[in-house]
């Protein structure tokens, strides 16, 4: 448990199916009712020396021994993310990771997107929040399947959380899964979930300089949705400055202006999703 911000490990993470009649508040992540097989991508070539019979790993190491690891710190997360990506791809499922600060309009955008795209393709949602099923309840009202992940005091979703959420969600083949990350413009940027695309949502009330201030987050994005453009007449937001700021931190990211409330610009967002699906479901050459 981090005393500075309260960030904690997976112990307090809960994966909740809001459609279930009762919810076990201690439905921890490490239960294994896996609908898919275990093809663990991690290696089992532990290079430890064996000490006396029954001794564990490391028992035979001489003091002063230097163990060379030369591995990525996030190797475990990255390997779980690869497994998620492979599992999704094998079923023709596309997952998009929606990241933003709290209050940028992720859930409102999702509600409308699910309602307006739901007749065209199968969609389901994974909601990430520290606490409550409020967002999952809003998605449930649209009729789409949804799983809520409560991270406790955790500040981001990681690949293991998505893995566990997908097991409960059981998304349909060839469907689209929206993953709404914990509202936070910093931490989610570092954790690959196995998604097809990372999308940053920002609202015009947040200020045009945010891409420069939170460059790591915007650097990862392939699409930036500028939300709440219906409020542009009432706020001091420079669209050109914003476009320039995004371009500086992510050369390849597209920017779409939308209003999840009025529907302005959403047809471009839906087209982007259709193109994403078409591109990745195209047979390999």
């Amino acid at each position: 448990m981090c005393l500075t911000c309260g960030c904690s490990d997976q112990e307090n993470v809960r994966v909740i199916d809001p459609s279930a009649t009762s919810v076990d508040p201690h439905d921890h992540l490490h239960e294994h009712d896996h609908p898919h097989s275990h093809d663990h991508p991690h290696k089992h070539d532990h290079p430890h020396e064996h000490g006396p019979a029954g001794a564990g790993i490391g028992a035979g190491l001489e003091p002063g021994t230097v163990i060379t690891l030369e591995e990525k710190i996030l190797a475990k997360n990255d390997s779980l993310a690869r497994r998620n990506r492979d599992w999704l791809a094998s079923r023709g499922i596309h997952a998009v990771n929606l990241m933003s600060s709290p209050g940028a309009g992720k859930t409102t955008l999702l509600e409308r997107t699910v309602r307006e795209l739901g007749s065209e393709l199968a969609v389901s949602v994974v909601e990430g929040d520290q606490e409550t099923t409020l967002d999952a309840d809003r998605i449930t009202a649209t009729g789409a399947p949804v799983i809520q992940v409560n991270t406790g005091s955790g500040c981001h979703l990681d690949a293991e959380m998505l893995d566990n959420a997908l097991r409960k969600l059981e998304p349909a083949p060839d469907s689209l899964v929206f993953v709404e990350n914990v509202g936070n413009l910093v931490c989610p940027a570092l954790f690959d979930l196995g998604e097809s695309a990372k999308i940053v949502i920002m609202s015009v009330t947040e200020g045009a300089d945010k891409p420069l201030k939170y460059s790591t987050m915007f650097h990862t994005a392939s699409l930036v949705l500028l939300n709440k453009i219906d409020l542009l007449p009432y706020v001091d937001f420079d669209l050109d400055q914003f476009a320039d700021a995004v371009h500086r931190v992510s050369h390849h990211a597209r920017v779409l202006q939308v209003s999840a409330t009025t529907g302005d610009g959403l047809s471009d967002w839906y087209d982007w999703l259709r193109q994403l699906r078409a591109r990745e479901t195209a047979p390999a050459q």
Binding site: H46, P47, H48, G56, I57, G58, A59, L61, T65, I67, L69, E71, I73, A75, K76
Partner: peptide, 9 residues
């Protein structure tokens, strides 16, 4: 990651 290699040492 480290304890996977160094165990109880």
């Amino acid at each position: 990651a480290v304890t996977a290699r160094t165990g109880t040492a």
